[in-house]
Amino acid sequence: MEITLNGKSVPVQGEATVLEVARREGIWIPTLCHHPGLPPYGACRLCIVEVKAGGRQGLTASCTLPPAEGLVVETDSPRVRERRKVLVQLLLAVVRDAPEIRELARRLGVEKAPFKPPEEKRECILCGLCVRVCETAGNSAIGFAFRGSQRRVSPPFGKAAADCIGCRACAKVCPTGAVRFEQAGDRLTGEPWQADLQVARCTSCGRPLAARLLLDFARKKVVCSDFEGLCPACRRRKVARSVKRRG
């Protein structure tokens, strides 16, 4: 199967979406809610492209657009550029200081947001990455709650995240830095989930390793009894010693 991207015919090599084909071809399409490890979601709309022929014509999100024979797509047409600018202006109005969004704004030539910012300061753009990664890799500790202007990401009942295992995947994928984990001594705290977890220490050197619940969780999923409870450095040492013995 072949599709036409920006006037050039390119093969589809098993990719499920036009976004993936474009990225393989080295074409820049901005995204905020996309993660290769998660199913497409289509929330941030930044990946919009213009379908010219071979499908329903008009602007559509490329992260949820399956390639089809004869599809003709423009990823950087004036309409696409204009719409992306507005999207970034809206995002800028909500979260002014997030580096990733500022960088996007710079790249798209957006200087100021003409939109009125919300009254209370917000850091979350509701892209849903943290929610989806928590469902997939974590323990479904956080999710979307309420709707419309009240929509937010929250642990159940707005209480401290009781099901959080401290894997920090949410902080890792968050594009705006709205999720923050901090480790101090034997406690790992995560905001804004009000997570408070016990940190396990390396059984060999005593250095802080990871949240105890995360280790329990991982133990159920993978078998690695040789390295149980060891920090990366101690693991390496153990492997090195065993290799030397075999030597």
């Binding site: 500790a141 999710g143 979307f144 709650a145 709707r147 159940p156």
Partner: peptide
């Protein structure tokens, strides 16, 4: 809250999801 916990356990649907549904629809109230 306790009822949602029971539903979560019986259906295997996370409490987080149920909280989302419960707060999304105006017909539900906590």
């Amino acid at each position: 809250e306790e009822a949602l916990r029971i539903v979560s356990g019986e259906l295997g649907v996370s409490l987080t999801r149920l909280y989302g549904v419960a707060t999304f629809y105006a017909a539900f109230s906590l």
